[in-house]
Computed example of a mutant assay.
Amino acid sequence: MARFSILFSLVIIAVTVKEIELSSDAMKAITSGFLKVLEQCKQELNLQGHVISDLYHYWKEDYSLLNRDTGCAIICMSKKLDLIDASGKLHHGNTAEFAAKHGAASEVASKLVEILHACEKTHDAIEDDCMRALEIAKCFRTDINQLNWTPKMDVIITEVLTEM
């Protein structure tokens, strides 16, 4: 019986690790897909290098995102990818579809939408659109880090830059 319990525990651990790997891989592809429109937004909004730095360090939990321009860039990229509706709120269907298109399983895509929606509701009272987007992004980052789904940004940036 003890052997069965140990074997069962190892199988559960292996499945959980594989789920985390798949989720992290999906987050890498989603982040990469999201950043592909950054250059357009950079030109349109006349964004400076600090925004690129903020996005490069985005997934680092200890990195403080304080720049309003980063929130504006996130809004711009989200609009270009049809991830937010005309009222500036998360478009659940388009966001889940975007995640799935970039390799997220339906459960992962649903969880991402759930997290974003919760973060959006938490920061709904912030009137400045760019600051609200920045706070939503920080909330999302924290929740993704807690799930251990954080992608490696150096790999993402290298991939995005080689495609530009």
Rank of each mutant, 00 (worst) to 15 (best):
M1Y: 09
A2V: 06
A2M: 06
S5W: 06
I6W: 10
F8H: 02
L10M: 11
I12G: 01
I13Q: 00
I13G: 00
A14G: 06
V15I: 14
T16C: 12
V17N: 01
K18A: 13
E19Y: 11
E21R: 13
E21N: 12
E21F: 14
S23T: 08
D25V: 00
A26I: 00
A26L: 00
M27D: 02
K28I: 00
K28A: 07
K28T: 02
A29E: 09
A29T: 05
S32A: 15
G33Y: 02
G33S: 12
G33F: 07
F34W: 10
F34D: 05
V37R: 12
E39C: 06
Q40S: 15
C41R: 13
C41P: 05
K42H: 14
Q43E: 15
E44T: 15
L45N: 12
L45V: 10
N46D: 10
G49F: 08
D54K: 03
L55G: 12
Y56A: 11
Y56V: 12
Y58D: 04
Y58N: 06
W59K: 12
K60R: 15
D62V: 08
L65V: 09
L66W: 01
R68C: 13
R68W: 03
T70W: 07
T70V: 07
G71M: 08
G71V: 10
A73S: 15
A73F: 12
I74M: 09
M77R: 05
M77T: 04
S78Q: 08
S78I: 08
S78P: 03
D82W: 01
L83W: 05
I84T: 03
I84G: 04
I84R: 01
A86R: 07
G88N: 06
G88D: 08
L90C: 03
H91I: 09
G93P: 00
G93Q: 10
N94F: 02
N94Y: 04
A99M: 07
K101I: 01
H102Q: 03
G103E: 06
G103V: 04
A104P: 03
A105G: 08
S106A: 11
E107K: 15
V108F: 02
S110N: 11
E114Y: 10
I115F: 03
L116E: 02
A118S: 14
A118F: 02
C119Y: 09
C119K: 05
E120S: 09
E120Y: 04
K121I: 10
T122Y: 10
H123A: 00
D124H: 07
I126T: 14
E127L: 13
D128V: 11
D128P: 04
D128W: 01
D129K: 14
M131T: 10
L134R: 11
R141V: 05
T142C: 08
I144M: 13
I144K: 03
Q146L: 13
L147D: 00
N148A: 13
T150R: 04
T150M: 01
P151W: 05
P151H: 02
P151T: 02
M153Y: 11
M153D: 08
I156F: 04
I157M: 15
T158K: 14
E159H: 02
E159N: 13
V160I: 11
T162Q: 15
E163N: 14
M164T: 14
M164P: 00
